[in-house]
């Protein structure tokens, strides 16, 4: 069953700038879908429309079978939103801010439970202005989870978190996914998407340029072999140089190309110093896409 359906979504700002240009994707129930992209690619602009914060200039959006903008009152009680930058009054304590939010919800979790989920129970009586950036991020997550959402929107949820908090947040998100919560994630941490997402889309300049499971997206990109070339002898493969003294070979058949290269080095008794061979990772796919499109 589809939880989120986006078709031909276009978003235009008042100056006429088209931030999102005909984006389409589906998110199935209980799945995590990640939207990746360079800064300014249109991720947040897309998600804001899916959250129902603004109306698309063209295209349609459906969340749990309803239009999130026009049928806001039907959609909102069933979703939780963590904005890229959400705010709380700085002079409220953590508990007061959470209670305020709980008071606006139809069926909230107990406040203590929500704070425990994000490891903030020990900071309950601290004023929001005294929290660290990471703690504020976790408070934002607690509020997003307060209404027991069926669909969760997470916009850069782990920005500013220390590595341990980030792992804990990932564990929390995994447990929510196991409970059947649908998650739409935007992030610029590629390893976050690789670790958590069932499927993902990479956006660039308002368009989706690659979409699928992590391996589907990655398989479309070549593996890389890099080394410092031996002097005075022509190489048997096509390489690109980046000016650092190393050269890079891109190949769709890593095993074959590597074999040829090593055999050539053996026959000619030369050393390939600093040899490094790797399959395409999400990061490489991402960088390749950003380069191609630039």
């Amino acid at each position: 069953m589809t939880a989120i359906e986006v078709r031909g979504l276009t978003r235009r700002y008042s100056g006429g700038f088209e931030a999102v240009r005909g984006v389409s994707f589906d998110v199935e129930r209980g799945e995590m879908f990640a939207l990746l992209g360079t800064n300014g690619a249109g991720k947040t602009s897309t998600v804001e429309v899916v959250e129902g914060l603004s109306r698309p200039a063209a295209g349609t959006v459906s969340v749990l079978g309803h239009d999130p903008f026009r049928e806001r009152s039907l959609v909102r009680p069933r979703v939780g939103v963590m904005l890229q930058e959400g705010g709380f009054p700085p002079d409220l304590t953590v508990t007061e801010a959470t209670k305020m939010w709980a008071g606006t919800l139809t069926s909230p979790r107990p406040v203590d439970e929500a704070l425990s989920l994000v490891d903030l129970a020990h900071r309950a009586s601290v004023r929001v202005k005294q929290l660290s950036g990471g703690e504020r991020r976790r408070l934002d997550l607690a509020l997003a989870l307060l209404g027991r959402p069926e669909v969760l929107f997470l916009d850069e949820p782990t920005t500013g978190l220390d590595p341990e908090s980030r792992r804990n947040t990932w564990e929390l998100i995994r447990s929510l996914l196991r409970e059947g919560v649908t998650v739409l994630l935007t992030t610029h941490y590629l390893e976050e998407a690789q670790a958590l997402a069932d499927r993902l889309a990479i956006m660039h300049r308002g368009r989706i340029v690659a979409q699928g499971t992590v391996s589907e997206v990655v398989d479309a990109y070549p593996a890389r072999i890099s080394f410092v070339p031996p002097a005075g002898i022509p190489l048997p493969v096509v390489v690109s140089e980046d000016g650092s003294g190393r050269v890079t070979v891109r190949t769709n058949n890593l095993q074959q190309t590597l074999h040829e290269l090593l055999a050539w080095a053996h026959v000619n008794s030369v050393e390939l110093s600093g040899l490094d061979a790797r399959s395409a990772s999400l990061e490489e796919a991402f960088l390749a896409i950003a380069e191609e499109a630039a």
Binding site: E51, L53, R72, S73, R76, P77, V81, L83, E85, G86, G87, F88, P89, P90, W101, T104, L105, T106, D140, L143, G147
Partner: peptide, 17 residues
Amino acid sequence: ARREELVLKRLRVGELT
């Protein structure tokens, strides 16, 4: 103050109209 603190923005993704 609430707008600049992003409180209004946050409230707007909740259930209140």
